[in-house]
Design a binder for these strands. Structure first.
Lengths: 185, 185
DNA sequence: CCTACCGATCGGTAGG
DNA sequence: CCTACCGATCGGTAGG
């Protein structure tokens, strides 16, 4: 699965052959079928593990009992940290899941929808509690949070100046406070 | 190129065969080679056209002479509108460009970098002009804007409640003002 | 885990 | 001479 995550993230699912995987593991391609059912099953396992990682983190962040802003911050920091720690598997989760056939894809779609629901719930909680602006479009704000978190795999490098947590925290501050100068209405 | 944009966006570059392309056009796959040099050349053309579209729009938005906030708004609205109007080609531009071989990929990378530079320039102009908060991390804010714009192809549907322009405008307002309630510091 | 295959299909090119 | 194709096949590789 590690080799698959790496190769699928670099070459894409369809750009990776069983030959590539065999080579990475020092096996003939036919021999891989003693360990996996099919190439697609391998994709599903990598994608599903990624989905579970994000979902588990989100549920934990959402249920802390803290104010909505703190929960959203924990979720965004957790999201970026998870993506950074499992960059290849996260890339596969985000980019290659759509190549699954209908039944497994629907399973993953359900987990993606659940994740988005968790994010929106935190935001609508924050609006209800008076923490966030009552004019906030909850669906749009949820998508902004997911966008910010999901796009980082395209530019994050482990040896960058900022840690994953710091990136998550910076993104949260931007989303919470905006670009505009405080003060004059 | 339209057929390639559609097929590459749905199946991915490596998941699309010359057979698929021929079928979409009512031709034998071999006949396509009277029109293109190679499959990769076709990918490059789709990706490059996408890059040029976004870059042209960004240059136009950036050079209006308006305040930074208005320019950033125009860029985000333009970005979402462009992505919406050419959803398939934009998807290929964003997802499949990395499968180009080194030389053409570097050409596209340069255009992507240029686009990001335009975005950052607007933001740093806004900070310098006192429109934006002086504490803003320009690189991070630029990535947030790009993230918001680049992720929409995953959920945008032409028959949704909001037009592309309206989505761009809502995203801009969120990024400018943030989630937080105005008032108490 | 191997070699040796299967039915099919890959991107690309042949001559006409 | 051109554009726009044909049926067949090139050397290799796909998943199984």
């Amino acid at each position: 699965m590690d080799a698959a995550a790496r190769l699928f993230s670099e070459r894409g699912y369809h750009g990776t052959s069983m030959q590539h995987l065999g080579q990475a593991l020092g096996l003939q391609r036919g021999s891989l079928y003693a360990h996996i059912g099919s190439k697609e099953e391998l994709l599903f396992d990598v994608v599903n593990q990624g989905a579970e990682r994000f979902l588990g983190m989100a549920r934990h962040a959402a249920s802390s009992g803290e104010p909505a802003a703190a929960r959203l911050r924990a979720l965004l920091v957790g999201h970026v940290s998870t993506a950074a720690q499992h960059l290849e598997a996260s890339t596969v989760f985000l980019n290659e899941w759509r190549y699954l056939s209908p039944v497994p894809r629907a399973q993953i779609q359900a987990k993606r929808d659940l994740y988005e629901t968790v994010v929106r719930r935190i935001i609508s909680d924050g609006v209800a509690a008076g923490e966030f602006d009552p004019g906030v479009n909850v669906a749009m704000a949820g998508r902004l949070v997911l966008s910010a978190g999901n796009w980082i795999y395209t530019w994050y490098h482990p040896d960058g100046a900022l840690s994953a947590s710091a990136i998550g925290a910076e993104l949260f501050d931007l989303i919470l406070n905006g670009l505009a100068k405080e003060g004059p209405a």
